[in-house]
Write a protein that binds this DNA or RNA. Structure first.
Lengths: 133, 133
DNA sequence: AATGAACTGAGAACGATTATCATATAGTCA
DNA sequence: TGACTATATGATAATCGTTCTCAGTTCATT
């Protein structure tokens, strides 16, 4: 595993670093011009391997990638699908819990599912009713 | 969304409940006889919707499902791919953190990645060396 | 320039999941 | 029970994210 970063991989990294959010491979592809699909996937793989980028499984169809900066957890809204970052670091606690079982944590992914702030607001506006068919 | 459970869905649930582990749709399919692929996926979807089963994104190619019992986190080994349960409940903490941002957590998924107990043991036996090509 | 290693991208291939649809089953009411 | 309707089933096709293949290109080194 080489730590060198090719031109294209650097461009992919730039997209993730600038946007500072969670992008699918397709979204990265869409926000770049003249780059092949395979190249984007390869770049994301490589960046993940060398630890500059994290591949997240947020329960959606496709994987999402984010540039690694600080430790935070992800909140995925059940209704609108939006992903929000929540600045909290639980790595230490998770590491301790795993240590008790003999496992060594490299990194941890915390994903919360529920109703986001915006959707809660919308929800409150709508009068309660049985689902109409 | 109906809460009724069909015969086949009940059978799928039984598999998950008995095995008490994380199974892919394909694994469920393989451990049953005379059931169609679509039916397994539909059953898993339905069971997930009515809250008896949880669909987990552990970062593997396919989703895994588990029968919901207690709250625990998942440890996925980078080397052997095994999934271990770790009995710890962080839901309260995660819920609080999300609450601060206005989000309402329904459930949370904690996945730790690293080297599992068994693989650490193997690792320790092998003398350190540069990767030979 | 010459050599070989690594990178690229178009398109094929793959694999997990979902959609389709004709048939079968379950549920309901007369 | 029989008739009728809604729902479930499963074989198969279709979809879609991702990976593979391979010929051509770029890069690094000499």
């Amino acid at each position: 595993m080489s730590v060198r970063i090719s031109q294209q991989a650097r461009a992919v990294l730039a997209v993730l670093a600038e946007r500072r959010c969670h992008l699918t491979a397709e979204e990265v592809l869409a926000s770049m011009e003249s780059i092949g699909t395979a190249t984007v996937y390869r770049a994301l793989d490589h960046l993940t391997e060398i630890g500059l980028v994290r591949r997240l499984a947020l329960g959606k169809k496709s994987a999402v990638y984010e540039y690694i900066r600080d430790s935070h957890l992800h909140f995925v809204c059940n209704r609108c699908g939006a992903v929000h970052d929540i600045q909290t670091d639980m790595t230490g606690m998770i590491r301790e819990a795993a240590k008790c079982c003999g496992h060594e944590v490299e990194w941890a992914e915390v994903t919360a599912h529920g109703l986001c702030k915006d959707c809660r607001a919308v929800w409150d506006e709508i009068p309660a009713q049985e689902s109409v068919q």
